[in-house]
């Protein structure tokens, strides 16, 4: 996850100090992700070294130091926004690993594993959907967008589980 670019984006909106950056980030992601304050300071130092940010006021130190973005930083930020996010090599997916190993080992209870996972994923989806029902897209758009992302990813997982079931059933028939 690009902490550098996130900080640049927030500083581009307005100069902020360290803790401000942390809380801004959490608010923007509706609390789903947060930043370690130490990570914030370390990243700010690296950004200053690269000339992408600079202190906004002189004389303040430590937590009170307000930072702002430089022209170089805006340039870098523009480039980040302009480029689509590259596909990462898939993060290790515990569910996929579980299923693949179960199939490889030819376990009898693969079907049950799939079913249980399906039930659990569906329950999570239900919870997120209920949250979405309560949310107001006008005033809480980021929150709704996040819920959509979570729901659709879970949906992808469910589709994959259904496909696994179907393929296993077909293999069993031969």
């Amino acid at each position: 996850m690009s902490v550098r670019n996130s900080l640049l984006a927030m500083l581009a909106a307005q100069p902020t100090h360290g803790y401000g950056l942390k809380s801004d980030f959490e608010r923007s992601t509706a609390g789903a992700w947060s930043l370690n304050i130490g990570q914030v300071y370390t990243t700010l130092a690296r950004l200053e070294r690269d000339g992408l940010v600079e202190p906004a006021s002189v004389g303040e130190d430590g937590p009170r130091q307000t930072w702002r973005i430089t022209d170089g930083g805006r340039h870098e930020l523009a480039r980040w926004f302009a480029e689509p996010v590259p596909g990462d090599p898939p993060a290790r997916d515990e569910l996929a690993i579980k299923v693949l190993l179960a199939v490889a080992a030819d376990r009898d209870d693969v079907a049950t594993i799939l079913e249980r996972q399906r039930a659990a994923t569906l329950e999570r989806m239900g919870e997120w959907t209920r949250q979405k029902q309560r949310a107001d897209p006008e005033r809480e758009l980021p929150w709704v967008l996040l819920l959509d992302a979570l729901i659709l990813k879970a949906d992808a997982e469910l589709k994959w589980l259904a496909l696994c079931e179907a393929r296993l059933a077909q293999r069993g028939k031969r």
């Binding site: 049950t112 079913e115 249980r116 399906r118 039930a119 569906l122 989806m125 239900g126 997120w128 959907t129 029902q133 729901i151 659709l152 879970a154 949906d155 469910l158 589709k159």
Partner: peptide, 21 residues
Amino acid sequence: ATHAAWADRVLYLRDGRLGAG
């Protein structure tokens, strides 16, 4: 499934039956 997620309960039919789960 994203629409089924709005439900209170989800029934899964396979080959005309509600199997285990």
